[in-house]
Amino acid sequence: MDVKLGVLAGDTRAVARAITWVENGDPRGAEVIRGVYASTGRAYIVGLTGSPGAGKSTLVSRLAALLAARGQKVGILAVDPSSPFSGGAILGDRVRMFDVALTRDVYIRSMGTRGALGGLNRATRMAARILDAAGFDWIFVETVGAGQAEVDVHDVAYTTAVVMAPGMGDDIQAMKAGIMEIGDLFIINKADHDGADRTATQVESVLQLSMTTGWNPPVLKVSAELNTGIDNVVDTIERHHTHLVASGKLDALKIRMAKLDVLEILKARLADMMKQQLEQPAVQVELEKVASKQSDPYSLADIIFEQSWRNT
């Protein structure tokens, strides 16, 4: 199987293998990205974040079903937390997505966070590039159940939707500083429960305090369970897309994405390099000096950093 050609042809097995490689930091993943990057940039990437259990997975599966019925190809990257202790994970998002699992043109991939803290997996960005190259029209990225710090999805998606459920008034207050700021739209899910109106009003009042940038984030009420209001979500995402294009923001975003693609790779390489340096026998002596306060961590970091550059 030639994975690169397979990805370009939209072959499921090739796409799946390529994502495994980028997730594992396998050099073959980098080769695939090099080979397919020219074919990326066509997919529209949507992020979904929000509190644990708000209904993100159920909603994504509804969105995917609706778009697939319109003849669109949909890729889903669903991130769940990895155990910080074992490094393992139970990736449960997919259980809610079985209705669309066999729909032609829908691809779902579960990912563990593998130690990343921003609500995604370090390879989610590159996995999205692979799906893009494979011809998916839409890519949905579901984060782990997020509080306020997990805002990385904003760096991956063109449109970010924050999903909430009724009865979390306090949470909205707490989220003010974090994910309330990254939402391009707010979805109050479980509108079949009491309290959706109240939650919507609370969200709106928090949003009124923020500065306008030519786009006022709509607050939508839906029920993923009953499959109501889903078309409205798609319409709103499309309207946001149109807004980004018309305002020139999409071009700026694409440059920002390119920058972040490069940054991600540089960070990984530097981290590897520095970790290797830290394992050098000569450094162990210096580490002991830091421990016994004969030296300090900044001074040692300076030495290691300079040496790494000399060695490359």
Binding site: G87, G88, L91
Partner: peptide, 14 residues
């Protein structure tokens, strides 16, 4: 659960 505790990534179908 056991596979997760052993450091594996598990997808459960239901």
């Amino acid at each position: 659960r056991a596979f997760m505790d052993a450091g594996m990534e598990v997808i459960y179908t239901g």
